[in-house]
Design a protein around this nucleic acid. Sequence first.
DNA 1: CGGAACTTTGATAACGTTCAACATTCGTGG
DNA 2: CCACGAATGTTGAACGTTATCAAAGTTCCG
Lengths: 231, 231
Amino acid sequence: MTTHHHHHDALGHHQCVRLVPIFNHLEDDQMNEIMQVAQSRQYKKGEMIYMAGDESDALYIVSSGKIRIYRLSESGKEQLVRILTPGEFTGELALFRESIHTNYAEAMSNTQVCMITRADLQEFLLKYPSISLKLLQEFSNRLDQSETQTTRFATEKVDTRIAYFLSDLMEDEGGSMIVDLPMTKKDMASYLGTTPETISRKLADFEDAGYIHQISNRKIEILDLDEMLMV
Amino acid sequence: MTTHHHHHDALGHHQCVRLVPIFNHLEDDQMNEIMQVAQSRQYKKGEMIYMAGDESDALYIVSSGKIRIYRLSESGKEQLVRILTPGEFTGELALFRESIHTNYAEAMSNTQVCMITRADLQEFLLKYPSISLKLLQEFSNRLDQSETQTTRFATEKVDTRIAYFLSDLMEDEGGSMIVDLPMTKKDMASYLGTTPETISRKLADFEDAGYIHQISNRKIEILDLDEMLMV
DNA sequence: CGGAACTTTGATAACGTTCAACATTCGTGG
DNA sequence: CCACGAATGTTGAACGTTATCAAAGTTCCG
């Protein structure tokens, strides 16, 4: 047990599979079948689920907790790619490729994941082709998101990127005028390709301009979205 | 016929299907089956294959010519996403989603494509699940590429992005020291999220530093890749 | 409660865009 | 095949934006 940096729970906790949109159109017996092969694992805060260069052999679905996915650029600088919350999954990138991870996955808090091995998943996909279509759909969405993000980096300055970030958060939270930042401002800077200093300054500028009100460190009230997006 | 801005060739020209890596592991009868439903189309230089907002209902495979895929940011600025050459395909993004295109596809020269409708493709995927796995693999690759690009934007300055762009081109051409730019410098600027002026200047700087030699407008000899990548 | 990590603010400097003028290349029709 | 016009590419100077460095303030977590 000392050689394992994670806790492997051979018994239950496979309910996580039900959390995943990709699987929740399955019939009961199919669901049972995949729950048979799913393994539950626990990671403590700060532990790595996988790293760039690791061989990829599994799909990881978050049951509880949060996972931070990041990359290092060729010259070693870190960028936050996305944060996974319960129901979301990762590992897919390398699952269908040369099976080497190109990014890093780190538990942000105590985190429980469901793991399905590459072999089991592929077998399952060949047996139930409709799941592949769902997966393709999910991939399409991510690709679109990633390209949207790329285009924002390529064409917008920091102001605007921050504004769209806040706008996206509002949508995620169903249009509430008060958004909770899902990460530290340091991480937000990394995600948006800028520095914590600049995030601080631009948010202060937005506040001066009357577009937002910073309620607390992690809470922002949006006062005038449209104006903010036209900066 | 006047209402159609493209030429539809109902007869042959379905060989294009053979060009696509995704399909070239198929057995003969499967190949014939998909060639049955593939339609050939021609676009003249400058014609649009699809635009953002169009309903997506087909996969387009390039037989000959080139297709320019680009996006507009929310604020209307254009970014070149990728250029498709024979054997590559597009249309996939919206194929499995809400079926609305989010980017633009424009013929860069007279271009012949093979078109497979959404319905035909889905039927085919359900019938031959192994193709889905190939498609998933292709999507993974694109996602990885897109995230790599995003990370470069987020963490590297223009110098370095240009250097990696040249480096990628070298790889594509099998390590030859002389690379042909696959697009105008204007497009290169759009792709790399900068301006033509800056591309000009940085390439001149690279030349001064002895990293490259600009043979002609579209041809660059790489003299010292390693040094150039460490700018 | 205390230390570490994160955040803010100010001053400065590096970086890249913009605008304008000129040079070159490309592509089309004669 | 050449000539011409349009599009693309180059160079310089000025400006705007954002990173960097430093120091002080705040929040978080054990």
